[in-house]
Design a protein around this nucleic acid. Sequence first.
DNA 1: AGCGACTACTCATATTCATGACTAGTCACT
DNA 2: AGTGACTAGTCATGAATATGAGTAGTCGCT
Lengths: 184, 184
Amino acid sequence: MALRHAVLAALLDEELSGYQLAKAFDMGVANFWHALPQQLYAELAKLEKEGLVAGREVVQDTRPNKRLFRVTGDGLAELERFAALAAKPSFIRDDLLVKVQAADHLDAAELIARLTERAEFSEAKAAQFEALLKGMRGERPEGEFLRYGERIGPYLTCRRGRDFERANHDWCREVIAVLRARSA
Amino acid sequence: MALRHAVLAALLDEELSGYQLAKAFDMGVANFWHALPQQLYAELAKLEKEGLVAGREVVQDTRPNKRLFRVTGDGLAELERFAALAAKPSFIRDDLLVKVQAADHLDAAELIARLTERAEFSEAKAAQFEALLKGMRGERPEGEFLRYGERIGPYLTCRRGRDFERANHDWCREVIAVLRARSA
DNA sequence: AGCGACTACTCATATTCATGACTAGTCACT
DNA sequence: AGTGACTAGTCATGAATATGAGTAGTCGCT
C-alpha cells in the first residue's frame, strides 16, 4: 500500500508525466522505491480517480501528447496521514545474499563471478547517485546545503541510496577476497 | 521465484521444521530474506512434492509432532543452477524513505518521531546480528575464522545484515540532526 | 481454575508486483 | 528505404507476498 505514497512523494516537487515518472522509478534513479511503468500508469489512474493527483493534457506536435500530473490538496493530506503511521521495518531481500548463504556448498568460482558483476553494478549506481547529489547541492558545501537548501528530502534519500550501494560494493569485494583466500 | 532458494539455503546446514524455519525467517533472524510462516509451509510442501527437500516425522510426546526437512541431492543441484544465474539487482524499498523524500512538505516533528523509532529498531537488530556473529566465530578472531572456519556463508550474510542496520541507524540519526537544525 | 504464551501447523483470500506483448508516431543514421 | 532507439502509453495474466482467522495441545503462573 505504499507505491501510491511513493508516487505522491515523487510528484511533490515537479509535475511529471507517467512516462517521466516511469523513468525516475526505473532502476536507474530509483533512490527510494522501484516500480515498473505499468504499475505507475495504473497507480496514477487510481490516484486521479480518487482526486489525490490532477492530470492535465499537454498537446505536443512532434511527439505523442502527454498528461502531466501534480499532487492535489487531498493528495498532500493523504501523504501526511501516511507519514503519521509507524513505518514498517524494511528488509534486505536479495538473490545474491541467498547465494552467499549457501557459499559453503557451492562452487566458489561461480559465486565470485556473481559477486564481481554485482560489485561493478553497485559501483556504477553509487556513482550515478553521487552525480545526482552533486547536481542538487551545486557549488554549496554539503553542510550548508542541508542547513539552508530549499529541498532536502530528495537529497537525503539519495544519500541513503548511495551509501547502500557503496556498502553493497564493499561487501562484495570482501566476500570475494575471503572466497579467494580460502580456495588458495 | 527466490523464496524457494532461500528456504533451500537455510536448510543446508541444519534440519529444521516449518515452525523453526518460520522463526528464522521472521524479523528476528532474517539476515538474507524475510517471509511469513504461511509462505514457508506452502513452499516446503511444494519443495517436498518436487523432491528438492525430504521431510521426516518426529514424534514428540509432550508437544505436537513435527516434520524436519533436509535438502536432497536434487535440491542442492537446483541451488547450484540458481547460483549460476545472474543475480537481479536489489533495491531498497522502504516506507521511511518515502516519508523522508516528502520531508520538505511534511511536519518535521512527526518525521523525527518515525526516524527515532526506526533508529532504535535498527540499533537493536544490529546488536542481535552482532551477537549471532559472535556466537558463530566463538573465540577465534574474525580473520582467522573467515580463513579457516567450516561454515562462513551464514556469517557473511549476517555481516551484511548487521552493516545494513548500522547504516540505517546512522542515516536516521543524521536525518534527525538535519531536521532539528533546520527547524531551529 | 483460568489466563496468556508457546509449539506446530492449516486454510482462504486479498493485494502487490512482475512479465510479455502491443499500438503508433518521430527522429537519427546508413 | 530500412533499422533501431525514443516518446507515450495500454492490456492481459500470472506469480509472489501479505492478511486474517482458526485448530489443538502444553506449560507456567496466580
